[in-house]
Each structure stands twice: as C-alpha cells, then as structure tokens.
Simulated scan of single mutants.
Amino acid sequence: MAQPLSSDLEKQIIEVEEQLRLAMLTSDVATLDQLIADDLVFTNHLGQIMSKQDDLAFHQAGLCQFQTIEYSERRIQPIGEQMVVSVEVQWAGLYSEISFQDNLQFTRLWQRSPQGLWQVIVGHSSVIQSNIH
C-alpha cells in the first residue's frame, strides 16, 4: 500500500525539483553538486549510464546551452524514506551550436544525504514518442 504524501514533504520535493531545473537551465555546477548524490546512477535518453562526475563535467564543458526546461505532469510517490518523482520535461537549446527540442519523461529517486539535504541518487530519462499508436 502506498504511503500518503504529506504536504510538507511534497513542498520540499517540489522545491528541490525546481532548484534542479534552474541549475540545469543555467549549468549551475555548484547547485548541481549539492543536489546530486556522490554515487548517482543516471541512465539518459540515449541509454548511457552517467555518474555525478559525468553530469557535472557535461555542464562544466559548456557544450549544451538550455534555452527552456519546462516541467509538467509531475507525480511524487514516497517509498520509505525516499521519494520517487516522475515528470514530463520539454526542453530546448543548443548542443555544439545545433538546436534541439525534446519531450522527455524523467524518473528520479531522491533521498536525504547524511547532512539532511535531498539529493538525486538514481535517475532515468526516456524520449516521449508523439506518434505511438
């Protein structure tokens, strides 16, 4: 049976999700460093497994400039002391000066660090196919 989500916990997760969105949008590596667990396992929409160091290096390199990152259809589900977030993301920008625009579905597992901060420990993204019948 699913645990009920308290409004306080929901607000906390919505807040860290927004911090993550803004940090990705601006490639704010310091904030990303705080929001991502050291032992992150992230599978991106290309099927590549990335670590925290890979993700931070991606943003530090400056090859990708996000112009928009918009969230919709967010679902938050507590699992024990962790929180699962599933969110639809529409993003656009430039990668190596080539424009892109994608609709993705992200799933993230948030857990508290020993210091009490919410951090992403596991993540996955998939491309949303608009022409599936």
Rank of each mutant, 00 (worst) to 15 (best):
S51V: 01
A23M: 08
T43I: 12
F58C: 07
L56G: 01
T43L: 11
D33P: 11
L22T: 07
Y71E: 01
D38W: 04
D54K: 12
C64V: 14
I49W: 05
E15N: 13
A61P: 11
A61Y: 01
N44P: 09
H59N: 06
V85Y: 00
L25Q: 06
K52N: 03
P4R: 02
I14Q: 14
S51W: 00
E81R: 09
I49L: 08
S27W: 02
P78T: 05
G80D: 05
A57R: 02
E70Y: 01
P78A: 03
A30L: 14
S86A: 15
R75Q: 12
V29H: 00
L25C: 05
Q65W: 02
L9A: 07
Q65V: 11
Q82G: 02
L32N: 01
M24A: 09
I14W: 10
L22G: 01
Q12H: 06
G47L: 13
S27H: 03
D39F: 10
L35P: 15
R21M: 03
D39I: 13
I49Q: 05
F42T: 00
I79E: 04
E70R: 08
G47M: 07
F42N: 00
H59T: 04
A57M: 09
T26Y: 05
E70D: 14
G62Y: 01
A30N: 14
F58W: 15
G47Q: 11
I13A: 01
M50S: 03
L46I: 10
H59F: 12
G80Y: 04
R74E: 10
S86M: 15
S6Y: 02
V84Y: 00
S72W: 13
G80I: 14
V29F: 04
A61S: 10
T31W: 02
E81K: 14
M50F: 02
N44G: 03
E73S: 13
D28K: 13
S27L: 09
S72L: 10
A30Q: 10
Q53M: 02
E17W: 06
E18H: 07
S7C: 08
I14V: 09
I76A: 05
V87E: 03
I79T: 07
I36W: 02
H59Q: 09
N44A: 05
V85P: 01
C64D: 07
D28F: 05
L35V: 06
D8G: 04
E15T: 15
L46S: 13
Q60N: 07
A23H: 06
L5R: 08
D28H: 09
Y71V: 13
L35G: 09
Q65S: 06
